[in-house]
Every structure is written in structure tokens, then in C-alpha cells.
């Protein structure tokens, strides 16, 4: 499903070359729940941007369900983000001026779904994340945990093959974090591939497999329990 082969990312800073990711290779199978664990500065975010088709590796190949995305044009990449990837961000990144329902509808607007189909799917998803009574609320009227639930519902809108979560609990208290991670686990059990990027070992503990990243290198993989 995800195949990274010798992926490197380097930036030219003045005369020096800064290596953020060095020779990273790993595979994530469909239906897995994987955590990318690493301290800040380990290159997690850069890796997440590459996995999310927002950035391109300097070297190496990245195949997403058989497609080498490093060879795709920007227009195709937008389509891949829309259809195959669902993002969940640390700071939720909901549009502040539109309701929870409209936020969930956004990816489906770019997928050219009809108004009625969007509305039905958005209501279904918000119900799935337990927010059926908050459809018309603006993000400012929601708690942190509720906002993250809306963001997760939005990420699932177009039936993505990969749910990509970047520090999804970074802005939440421990109780809410637990609830959100439970939600990810439930979603994974229904067949969604989940990749969580975190520095928090407690968060990573929800995953079935951990990939540890330090200074832009994979330093270890650990199978925590059988694949669910």
C-alpha cells in the first residue's frame, strides 16, 4: 500500500546541505495501524508531508497503492490528496467561518459530489465520530476533542486509503487524547489504514507497529501486537 524506497530529503541552506531525511525505506500494508515515533527535529513532519503528497523527496521512490507519486504532476497530486489521503492535523485546521457539517463537506466539494450526496455523507460521518448533535456548530463553538473529531470525519470524507494523522493529540488533554486514539483504533478495525506521526510513546502505543525515527533515519521497527 505504502512503499518507501531510499527516500531522502535535503535542503540547500546557504552553502551547506541540510539532510532532513536520509535513506528511508519502509512498507505499510493495507489495514495496518502504524505509528511513526520520533522526537522533535527527527524529520517526522517532513516525512508526513512526503507521505501526504504535499512535498517531494529529493531522492528515492514513494509508491502509494502502486502509483509512484514522485512522478506525478501537481494537478494529479491534488487529486490523489483528495481521493486517497485523509489528513488529521495537530491544530485541527478547520475553516473557522463554516459549520462542522460544511467543513466535512469540503473534500467532497473538490471531488465534485452533488450537494445532497455531500450532505448525507457528512451527516453520516459526523454521526460516526459521535457529533450528530453538533452539525451546525462553528469550530469556535466546539471543544478541542470535538474539533479533532470533525477533522477526522473530514479526513474520511472521500473514503481515503490512508488516514495520515500528524500529532493528532498534541493540542488535547490526556483524557481527550485517549478518546481520540480509541477512535483511530475503532476506525482501523473497520479497515482504514492509519498512520500516526507522534513524539509521544503513549500515543504510539495504540498502533500495532512502531517505526522509530531519529535524525532523519529509521532506527528501529517494533511489532507491538498482532495486526488488527
Amino acid at each position: 500500500m505504502i512503499v518507501l524506497e531510499h527516500v531522502s530529503k535535503r535542503y540547500a541552506l546557504g552553502g551547506e546541505t541540510l539532510t532532513v531525511l536520509a535513506d528511508i525505506s519502509f512498507t505499510v500494508e493495507e489495514g495496518e495501524f502504524v505509528a511513526l515515533l520520533g522526537p522533535s527535529g527527527s524529520g517526522k513532519s517532513t516525512l508526513m508531508h512526503i507521505l501526504g503528497c504535499l512535498d517531494m523527496p529529493t531522492e528515492g521512490r514513494y509508491c502509494l497503492s502502486g502509483v509512484d507519486v514522485t512522478k506525478e504532476a501537481p494537478r494529479r497530486l491534488a487529486h490523489i490528496r483528495n481521493q486517497k489521503i485523509g489528513f488529521v492535523f495537530q491544530n485541527f485546521h478547520l475553516l473557522p467561518r463554516i459549520s462542522a457539517l460544511q467543513n466535512v463537506e469540503l473534500p467532497m466539494i473538490y471531488a465534485h459530489l452533488s450537494r445532497a450526496a455531500r450532505r448525507a455523507r457528512a451527516e453520516e460521518l459526523l454521526e460516526l465520530v459521535g457529533l450528530s448533535n453538533r452539525l451546525r456548530h462553528l469550530p469556535t463553538e466546539l471543544s478541542g476533542g470535538q474539533k479533532q473529531r470533525v477533522a477526522i470525519a473530514r479526513a474520511l470524507a472521500n473514503h481515503p486509503q490512508l488516514l495520515l494523522a500528524d500529532e493528532p493529540t498534541g493540542a488535547l488533554d490526556s483524557e481527550t487524547s485517549r478518546e481520540i486514539m480509541e477512535l483511530f483504533r475503532e476506525l482501523n478495525q473497520t479497515g482504514v489504514t492509519v498512520l500516526v506521526i507522534t513524539h509521544d510513546a503513549n500515543v504510539a502505543a495504540y498502533a500495532a507497529r512502531q517505526i522509530r525515527l531519529i535524525d532523519g533515519r529509521v532506527v528501529g521497527e517494533e511489532e507491538l501486537r498482532g495486526r488488527s
Binding site: 491534488a78 481521493q83 473534500p107 473538490y110
Partner: peptide, 9 residues
Amino acid sequence: IRMSLGASR
């Protein structure tokens, strides 16, 4: 945000 959700340029 819009770009991450699949909005083309």
C-alpha cells in the same frame, strides 16, 4: 488547508 484537502491550484 484547502490544498491539503485536494484543491488544485
